[in-house]
Amino acid sequence: MTSQGSTWPASSGSGRQSRQAERQQEITDVVIAEGTVRIDDLAERFGISAMTVHRDLDELEARGLLRKSRGMATAMSTSLIESSDVYRLARQNQEKEEVARAALDYIEPGQAIFLDDSTTVLRLAQHLHRKTPLTVITNVLTHLNGLNGVRDISLIALGGDYHNWCSAFMGRMTLEAIARLRADTFIMSTAAITDDMCFHQSPETVDVKRAMFESSKRRILLVDHTKFERRALHALVRLEEYDLVVVDSKTDEAHISRMEAQGINVLVAPRAGHTERRRSED
């Protein structure tokens, strides 16, 4: 049972914060689609004051999504945009929920688990109260805020240099802290899968995920079908090195068959109201 003090991103809640988050996501989509948009035009389009647009753009700029200058809002590079947690929170919500709920069955009370900064794992974190007691180890401020006060969840916060675009701590201090720990399970996602290898846009993120991977006994990857259609620059871990790869129900059968042929343990998450489809087991 969560306490009233626990907080999750506004996109999963309601009220003013939720409306603000939805508006910021819509503003982001408009600017990405058009490249550059006048701030006055955004105010007119969304029926809000120019001051409110400026506040929204200040937050979006701090997260690496947009640049604000001389009365204009301009989209940042695609790789920076796709790395931002604000951008990622608005994508594939149903698929992420499917995958997160399926993965929850592989967490046992009493475990110590690493959680990465992916928005798919954020979905799973919101259900962890059902698996207590747990020790959660994370570098993600969103996880720490959301799980703070949840009964029978002990938190270990990994410090370091804070990066607002992903709400996470990274860098040398983070890696040193991870190296001193050993967890039962690491649960993560990735930006892209190419040639059955996980990739990410940010080398700093790759370093943290790889360190958590090496410090865990069991490794679980959560991915929705769109990850097989994307590309990113920095290689992380091959799929065959994971103990379990959880995919959503829209994943192409060709990807599933190929992974199974390589001995990769694949779990296809069921759609709501459907029977779970289990693949090869440990």
Rank of each mutant, 00 (worst) to 15 (best):
I193V: 10
S189L: 05
S216P: 05
D117L: 11
D116P: 03
R231A: 14
D161I: 04
N148Q: 11
E44V: 11
N164H: 07
M197T: 07
P9I: 10
R23N: 01
E176V: 04
S280D: 03
Q262H: 08
G71H: 06
A21G: 07
L233A: 14
L144Q: 05
L221Q: 01
I81H: 05
T251I: 03
R45D: 01
S83R: 15
R88N: 12
D224C: 01
F213V: 06
P133R: 10
I107L: 04
N265H: 11
S79R: 05
G171K: 01
E176P: 02
P9Q: 11
V121M: 07
I113L: 14
R278L: 10
L65M: 13
L122V: 07
L66N: 08
S216W: 08
R67N: 13
V31Q: 07
T120N: 01
D41M: 07
R180E: 12
E260F: 01
V140R: 11
S79L: 02
M76N: 14
I187V: 15
T138S: 12
E260W: 00
S249R: 06
S6V: 10
L115D: 02
F186W: 04
L134V: 11
A211N: 02
Y162R: 03
A191R: 06
D117N: 15
D243H: 10
S6H: 09
T28E: 13
Q94A: 15
R16M: 12
L155I: 11
T135Y: 03
H255M: 08
L233P: 09
L128V: 14
Q111E: 15
G159I: 02
S79K: 05
L158M: 05
F46H: 04
M212A: 10
N139A: 14
G273T: 04
I81N: 05
R19W: 01
E98W: 09
R91V: 09
E59Y: 09
K217C: 06
T78K: 14
T2W: 13
A62V: 04
D29M: 08
Q4K: 15
L141K: 08
